[in-house]
């Protein structure tokens, strides 16, 4: 029976095949050329978007977290309306609102997208490979504590795990707890403690 869905046109290959990149690269080039010929993409438009994408790193999210740790009014705004609050940092979430979940002494939040790989890209950039892996997507909702243990996170007794399956229109940011021993630190120094994984919920910051 003919299959009328999408097809993959490259050769079969093992992921460690050194020519893998160049074969797939032909597909990307073919698509870009066709879209440019159709008048849909202007020459250079894709390259400019790549440049924009390269400027977005988890450091941006870390600044937001550090601000929330030092400015209670900002933290309140961030929790009430994440998209509006990060606009103060020049981040535009578009049609997918930012939803911020706060870790407390009794709740640890952890984000997954079991159906695909939804992620707050305008704030944190491209998601890590593990976040997109079948293993993480499968297990995070079934055995979150075992997954956390693999990442080196062991929660104290009395802390509930709250997993968020990013199935629809929201994009999630975990607001981690500010580590003890950081009293008096300024925002820049605090931001240095906030790794990407802390903002997904598979790590906790420490001073």
């Amino acid at each position: 029976m003919p299959h009328d869905g999408p097809h993959h046109h490259g050769h079969d290959h093992a992921p460690d095949d050194p020519s893998f990149g160049s074969r797939a690269a032909l597909g990307a080039r073919a698509l870009r050329e066709l879209l440019e010929e159709a008048g849909v993409l202007a020459p250079g438009e894709v390259a400019r978007q790549v440049e924009r994408m390269d400027t977005i790193t988890p450091a941006l999210g870390a600044k937001v977290v550090a601000r929330a740790w030092t400015d209670p009014d900002f933290k309140a705004r961030l929790l009430a309306d994440g998209s509006a609050a990060v606009r103060e940092f020049g981040v535009e979430m578009g049609t997918t609102p930012l939803y911020v979940v706060e870790n407390t002494e009794s709740v640890h939040n952890m984000i997954v997208c079991t159906l695909c790989s939804c992620y707050p890209k305008p704030l944190l950039g491209i998601p890590p490979d593990w976040y997109k892996s079948f293993e993480y997507r499968s297990r995070a909702v079934r055995e979150p504590r075992a997954v956390l243990a693999e990442f080196g996170v062991r929660l104290p007794d009395g802390v509930a795990v709250r997993v968020h399956d990013s199935t629809a229109d929201l994009r999630y940011l975990v607001l981690p707890r500010r580590p003890e021993g950081t009293e008096g630190w300024d925002e820049a120094r605090l931001a240095g403690l906030v790794t990407r994984d802390c903002m997904i919920g598979t790590a906790v910051p420490s001073a």
Binding site: G21, A24, A25, A28, R32, D54, S133, E135, Y136, E150
Partner: peptide, 20 residues
Amino acid sequence: GPVPRAEHVLAPWEKEVDAI
């Protein structure tokens, strides 16, 4: 199985697909 933790830097073609 275990979550694979190796991370790779995106190849130019991967960024291009994302950007498209």
